[in-house]
């Protein structure tokens, strides 16, 4: 009897030890994706494919299959997730069609002992992990950069995104919080550029004549190149325009840098965030203690990293970065 108890205890101890340093080489991870119809999502899937293929080849995990629902519908994605449970995946990484309508299926997965990590389109079921984007922090980081670049401060022109979308509100809130904390900056005007170069150019051209000298333009991405064109057309000196990682923006910045040493920075969210979610799932399977809410670092391009990023960005695309296991560990450690 005592021997048996001892054996049991040993087994329990062993399993605990295993859990702490589990080998994930036999684990299978699936990507449940709800939509693939734009360049960002395509880049996201390509990044997943590239990084996970390598991970499978290296024997880090046994499989990492990507599934995209045929239609962008929550009921279909719920069925897809339930199928993944049946297929015996150990972890499901999900970009969700709805933050709430998948909760039932995700609960089923958790109950079956499956690790669920949501990213980009996150889910609010408490048993799932969330890799969320800190858009507010992204807006604030623009002011942080300007604080260093313009110690004397100056007037700011804000280009906002698409009205009514929470991303626009969040980035703008971050920018304005930064301005409030740094009184040397003054927000003298705001226009909606809808994250599109042509819209931004028109909007900036319209407001420029009424504005005093502008020291910097704070943006949301997809609007920096248009703003630069508007300033050039009005014959005004080009201020520091924060860029948003689009290829046309980076190209323009490179041209200006080569011509007159123009300095700025560029910031946005990389589609490769899917690979970060993958590594987070792998870390959880590995038995690591991971907080339920993680924040994606944004992809920031500075003066010295411009050339490398521009070279890697396809024509008409968005600068991307694939995350590594170390990046995921850093994010996890940073949140603790």
């Amino acid at each position: 009897m005592t021997t048996r108890k001892l054996l049991l205890a040993t087994a329990a101890l062993a399993s605990v030890a295993c859990a702490a340093h589990a080998d994930t080489s036999g684990k299978k991870i699936a990507l449940s994706n709800n939509y693939a119809g734009n360049s960002w999502r395509q880049a996201m899937l390509q990044s997943w494919d590239k990084v996970t293929k390598q991970a499978v080849a290296d024997g880090v995990v046994a499989a990492a299959d990507a599934f995209t629902t045929a239609e962008n519908q929550a009921t279909e994605q719920a069925a897809q997730i339930q199928n993944m449970i049946l297929q015996g995946y150990d972890a499901i990484v999900v970009n969700a069609a709805s933050p709430t309508a998948l909760n039932g299926a995700i609960k089923e997965a958790c109950d079956a002992g499956i690790v669920v990590v949501s990213f980009d389109g996150i889910v609010d079921e408490p048993c799932a992990w969330r890799v969320a984007v800190d858009f507010k922090g992204m807006g604030k980081s623009e002011i942080e950069y300007l604080k260093g670049a313009l110690p004397d401060g100056g007037n700011l022109l804000e280009i906002r995104g698409l009205a009514g979308v929470f991303v626009d509100d969040a980035i703008s809130a971050g920018i304005n919080e930064g301005v409030a904390e740094n009184p040397q900056f003054k927000n003298v005007g705001a226009v909606h550029g809808d994250w599109a170069q042509d819209v931004a150019q028109k909007a900036v051209a319209g407001i420029l004549p009424s504005l005093p000298e502008i020291a910097a333009v704070v943006t949301q991405g997809g609007d920096g190149y248009g703003a630069a064109q508007a300033f050039a057309a009005a014959g005004r000196p080009t201020p520091i325009i924060i860029m948003g990682n689009r290829q046309d923006e980076l190209k323009w910045w490179k041209e200006q840098k080569d011509a007159n040493g123009y300095k700025t920075m560029s910031v946005s969210i990389a589609p490769g965030v899917s690979t970060l979610a993958f590594w987070v799932a792998q870390q959880i399977l590995d038995g690591k203690e991971v907080p339920k809410d993680l924040t994606v670092p944004f992809l920031r391009i500075d003066q010295d990293t411009l050339e490398a990023n521009l070279a890697n960005t396809p024509e008409g695309g968005v600068a991307n970065v694939e995350y590594s296991q170390e990046d995921a560990i850093k994010v996890i450690e940073g949140t603790k």
Partner: peptide
């Protein structure tokens, strides 16, 4: 009952 919560577009495919 299955989904635990709703969404205005939840059943468009039906």
């Amino acid at each position: 009952g299955l989904a635990t919560s709703a969404d205005a577009n939840i059943a468009l495919r039906y």
